[in-house]
Design a protein around this nucleic acid. Structure first.
Lengths: 115, 115
DNA sequence: GACTTATATAAAGAAATCATTATATACTAA
DNA sequence: TTAGTATATAATGATTTCTTTATATAAGTC
């Protein structure tokens, strides 16, 4: 069942800009089902912590992820209330489950107190 | 009926980068059904001819449009053979038909020998 | 051939993007 | 309170993107 909530071209562009970066697209694929904290992203992507934080900020500003604070950690997951969810889910569904990049990232998923 | 031809995350990113620009997204919306020549795009978008040509080149390099030469004109239309068609159609389907930008562009559509 | 028209390509500059290092904030624990 | 950990923000620089102006190519016309 494909929900077809339509939006303006400008809104679609805003969503596409947010996920047209390889790191952020993969991030969205990961948080589609999981909730992950910043330090986990850092481990998985092998990127500096500020770089990860800035990508997450862009996703948050676009309304694609929501932040959940628990203890000293901040968890990110897909914002299912976003107007962009139908579009976003549609895009993510085109990434094959066996995608090597996604597989490699998931293999590196460490416990929350990884850092 | 939603075709679900899956691709690698890298391929999806390549497609998204091509259409995450407002001009190019609208261009794809227009050539989804129509075949348009460069001078028509120039009229419709009110942008310089080289700017239009460069956007078209990016779309062509991504395999999203095909070029058809007839006389002195070059017509562009969606490349229905592209691996990205299912993803692309999915994205375009989220743009509402009454979108003001799309409507404004279509209203400006001039005959081919416009220039 | 010379001239016009449609389009592509090149060159250049402003603005946006994405990374890094350095620093600030905020929560936890002792 | 002091120290440590997790994350955000600021500052900076390299690269990319998007536009414009200038020039080249290629087809059509006289």
């Amino acid at each position: 069942m494909e929900t077809l909530a339509k939006q303006s071209a400008a809104d679609v562009t805003a969503c596409l800009k947010a996920v047209s970066d390889p790191t952020r697209l993969l991030m969205m694929k990961l948080v589609e089902t999981n909730e992950l904290c910043v330090c986990q992203f850092v481990e998985m992507f092998g990127m500096s912590q500020p770089a990860i934080s800035q990508h997450l900020r862009k996703l948050k500003q676009a309304g694609l992820v929501k932040e959940n604070r628990r203890g000293q950690w901040r968890f990110y997951s897909m914002n299912k209330e976003s107007m962009h969810v139908p579009l976003l889910e549609g895009i993510l569904s085109h990434i094959e489950d066996t995608d090597p990049q996604v597989m490699a990232l998931r293999a590196k998923e460490a416990p929350v107190d990884c850092c």
